[in-house]
């Protein structure tokens, strides 16, 4: 593996094949915990950790697992890793553990985890697999963070509320009150806000892509192609 391939893996996870807004995998936690930045990023990082560990640990044993029991073994490993993460959060980040609740154990059922293990780790070496899992997890984290920020600012006028749950009492004063005296736009915090927000993010990404494509296309034939494409 050369450097370019690692870069491609990162680019895939964060942008080109982003699980949250391109593959649209793992939407249940994405929609349910993205009401604040802290919740979203925490679950995202927990998922990224599980993905990196599961891909990284499954890749080296891929040749020793018979094909027929491939899936049960993979799921077993993922479930173990998730449970370990759950125990650790329960022990050392109790507040966050309570807030994220059922969505931590549900990382097991997040199809993006098994999808990367199947699609990538079962065919590649350990290091790139771990990187792939982590990059995909980071891509999901990024979406969760941005969506969480949108919903939190619009819904409550704050950023990083609940950060003390993740980082301990010393972080209690780190909450940013973006809009002072804000009455709150509740729908952003409630489930509909998650759907609308995700829709806007997907639209935003498609728009950026379209613009990039247009630029790329308009370079060789600058005069005629551009206005045509603008209609799309």
């Amino acid at each position: 593996m050369n450097l370019q391939e690692y870069k491609d893996i990162l680019h895939n996870g964060l942008w080109k094949q982003n699980p949250g807004i391109v593959q649209l995998l793992g939407l249940c936690p994405l929609l349910a915990v993205s009401s604040t930045v802290v919740n979203g990023v925490s679950l995202g990082l927990a998922t990224a950790l599980v993905m990196a560990l599961s891909s990284g640990s499954i890749a080296p044993i891929r040749n020793y697992v018979p094909n027929e029991i491939r899936i049960p073994v993979f799921i077993l490993i993922i479930a173990v890793l998730v449970t370990v993460v759950q125990y650790l959060m329960n022990a050392y980040m109790y507040g966050l553990y309570v807030v994220l609740g059922i969505f931590i154990p549900l990382i097991v059922t997040n199809c993006i985890v098994l999808a990367r293990v199947e699609a990538f780790a079962s065919k590649n070496a350990a290091l790139p697999s771990a990187l792939d899992g982590f990059a995909m997890g980071l891509g999901l984290t990024a979406v969760l963070g941005v969506l969480g920020a949108m919903r939190e600012v619009l819904g409550k006028g704050t950023l990083f509320s609940g950060i003390d749950l993740a980082l301990g009492d010393m972080a209690q004063g780190w909450v940013l009150h973006i809009i002072p005296d804000y009455k709150g736009f509740l729908i952003a915090i409630l489930p509909p806000g998650a759907f609308i927000g995700l829709g806007l993010l997907i639209a935003g990404r498609n728009w950026l892509n379209l613009r990039a494509e247009q630029k790329a296309r308009s370079k060789p034939a600058p005069s005629i192609a551009a206005p045509e494409a603008a209609q799309g």
């Binding site: 709150g184 509740l186 729908i187 952003a188 509909p192």
Partner: peptide, 8 residues
């Protein structure tokens, strides 16, 4: 719907 959910 947005209003009744957001500002009940």
């Amino acid at each position: 719907a947005v209003l009744i959910v957001s500002f009940p």
